[in-house]
Amino acid sequence: MRAWLPSLLRAVLLAILLAFLISPGWFEPLLKPLVQDNAPAIYNQGSLLTLTLLHLRTVAIATIAAIIVAVTLAILVTRSFGAEFLPLSRSLVNVGQTFPPVAVLALAVPALGFGEKPTLVALFLYGLLPIFENTLTGLTTLPPSVMEAARGAGMTDRQRLFKVELPLAMPVILAGIRLSVVISLATATIGSTVAAKTLGEVIIAGLQSNNIAFVLQGGLIVGALAVLIYDGLSAIEAVLARRAGL
């Protein structure tokens, strides 16, 4: 395959996605055959663009919180003073991952009410593990000679962390974040079962009114977002990895 072909496909996908979000009416003829007479082919209970932005916002807030907590935790348990908390923090984060997001929603609604908050909690817990595990891997598999040289050069613990360990672990950490973001993008749709404003609304509306076109457009927007964000983060990772000589 030619080198420019994947980039071209991504650009086309992005263009189609933007066109669909800004002017969904253009695509009505394509979706019309999927619906019964008189039923709308394009989601008509709100703006798709607004829902997409809210969806992205929910994912972004949950992911940023997960990054802060998971990376901080991974840094603490890889310091000499925190090493004994490593097994404990591993199990905690694993519990977050094994707990089904739907169950988190069900438990969080009584405490936090309907809307975005329970969704954020579910996405946050679900997103912790990949970031934590990857940060841990990145920080514990650094080349020993480089770490020795950093100490030998007279770097303090803090300088070693920020000037050597984190920059070198960055590609692996980013891979964890990428995984977490993609999982969250898909999982966020179930937030609409507790009235969070996400693209799940479109899918749920489609399911309730037996409107395949709604289900399809909700699912495809989420899918396109996931592919584009995944590729974008992969590209950043590749640049960082090349710069790090890895």
């Binding site: 000679s145 020795e148 050069a153 790090a244």
Partner: peptide
């Protein structure tokens, strides 16, 4: 760490920082 900044240290396998240029590596201390 202050002592080590005053003493040069070179090791087997060089231990250069892979994410820094040659000039940045040399400028470490």
């Amino acid at each position: 760490f202050e002592l080590r900044r005053r003493i040069g240290y070179a090791i087997q396998g060089h231990g250069l920082f892979p994410h820094r240029t040659v000039a940045q590596n040399i400028a470490t201390v």
